[in-house]
Amino acid sequence: MSLYMSPKYKEQVLDRKRWFEWDYKWFWGSFAWVLHRLSGWALVFYLLLHIWVIHHLSRGPAAFDQVMQAVGTPLFKVLEIGLWGVIVYHAFNGMRVIIVDFWHGSKYQKQLFFIVLFLFVVLWVGGGIIMALHMIH
């Protein structure tokens, strides 16, 4: 892909108001989009760490159980419940993005976002309770 950027592109795409500017005008779709991007960054950060941690399997049972113990403290368990929330949001909003892209869903993007938020709350709370119960036992 050539990275040449025409003056028109620069004006219409690059110089428009950004979501992190104080006078950006928010709407439901931009809210969904920003959450999707932030959760995406968080998930990539987690993925890289996760592969690094799990690769200790190749160093045998002692090394693996040792590293798992290090990430098995209550702090990490609570963070894992947060991770579950981030996953659920990104997964279901991702499905919303696909519906919007492929099935003229832009008509219903706002309603679809409310469905995503509903599923996010239900699944995060439900899964969080199960994980919290595992933590206690």
């Binding site: 798992m68 997964a91 899964g127 994980m131 595992h134």
Partner: peptide, 20 residues
């Protein structure tokens, strides 16, 4: 696959992830 992965690792199991 990720929802399946997370379910197997955190919901249906004992919550204990060991080498064994």
């Amino acid at each position: 696959i990720l929802l399946l992965h997370f379910t197997i690792m955190h919901f249906t199991g004992t919550g204990e992830i060991t080498y064994e």
